[in-house]
């Protein structure tokens, strides 16, 4: 039962005594190094946050290496100018269904790949994984044409096309993200003990029940990890949103950041504030799911 071992170990069971080991000089050195690296890593972000809290008036006159001009106005202005409220909602409309659909479809394929040992599986894995790695800009023009040709009923899309509809945007994100999830999930599922299925088959469980009631519950950590990553990626994605939509009011929040950049003039402090606002949801998701994160990504392929 290799997964069981993995799980227990990461929860700290066998290693618990190790953690309480006293501080040797070597350990202190290690901590010192890690703290230094962490601070260095945090610094650019902290600097952006700091910038967002200062007035343009002050920093333009005194430069950024100065002290003063503290204000929260940038946040208020950013929120209003870019109409973040509305656009956050748009991002939710796109991200939530896209992530759920990606995980569902990817787990289906991954299940088949992991559950059976057909020759075709490898081709399948290849088709999905490679699709995730293709450069997106390269596919824009054919995709745009496709989107303007596919009709949708009016209740689904104002434009009566895939173009300029959330449906289209959700599907394109799912298509591009499936590959990575299939890859991770199939590896994870392969590491599950096969006896489970033998037992389920003796009970007469159908393939669907094996998938939904046996495999999926065991994949929770992997699904949580993938959900975190996918939320981050799909939420941050704005290339497709801006080229496959034409109604500014439907754009997701990441692209509405552009509204803060003037045609001729850009106020860095204001853009910083907007950037911080935009980054908050991904940070929240990360903190919420962090516990599952590393464990879930365990690709399951390195059992001893």
């Amino acid at each position: 039962m290799s997964t069981a071992t993995i799980t227990r170990r990461t929860e700290g069971g066998p290693d618990a005594p190790q953690r309480r080991r006293r501080m040797t000089p070597l350990r202190m050195l290690l901590h010192g190094f890690l703290i230094a690296v962490s601070l260095a890593w945090l610094f650019p972000i902290a600097w952006a946050v700091l910038t967002s809290l200062r007035s343009y008036e002050y920093t333009a006159a005194n430069g950024y290496v100065s002290f003063g001009g503290w204000t929260l106005d940038n946040y208020v202005t950013a929120w209003q100018t870019a109409e973040f409220g509305k656009h956050f909602l748009n991002s939710v409309y796109i991200t939530v269904p896209a992530v759920l659909l990606t995980l569902f479809l990817a787990s289906c394929v991954a299940f088949v790949i992991a559950r059976f040992s057909w020759k075709l599986n490898l081709v399948l894995l290849g088709v999905f994984t490679a699709a995730n790695l293709l450069p997106q800009q390269a596919l824009l023009i054919p995709l745009f044409r496709l989107f303007t040709e596919v009709p949708l009923p009016e209740f689904m899309s104002d434009s009566e096309l895939l173009y300029d509809s959330y449906w289209g945007l959700i599907l394109i994100n799912v298509a591009f993200q499936c590959g990575f999830c299939v890859f991770v999930l199939s590896n994870y599922m392969k590491a599950l003990p096969r006896d489970l299925y033998e037992a389920a088959m003796v009970d007469g469980a159908s393939i669907w029940r094996q998938y939904w009631q046996v495999t999926m519950p065991l994949c929770r950590p992997a699904l949580a990890a993938l959900a975190t990553l996918e939320v981050t990626w799909i939420y941050n994605e704005f290339f497709w949103a801006t080229v496959l939509m034409r109604t500014g009011d439907k754009f997701p929040v990441t692209s509405s950041l552009n509204n803060l950049r003037g045609e001729f003039f850009t106020d860095n402090n204001l853009v910083s504030a907007g950037s911080v606002l935009v980054a908050i949801p991904t940070l929240v998701i990360f903190f919420m799911l962090q516990r599952h994160f590393v464990r879930g990504l365990t690709l399951g392929a390195s059992k001893g």
Binding site: V112, L124, V127, L143, L171, A175, C178
Partner: peptide, 17 residues
Amino acid sequence: MVLVPLLLVTGFVWLPA
């Protein structure tokens, strides 16, 4: 389980490619 995702990926990624 295989066909639906496959069609999606083929239609939106491989055909445009």
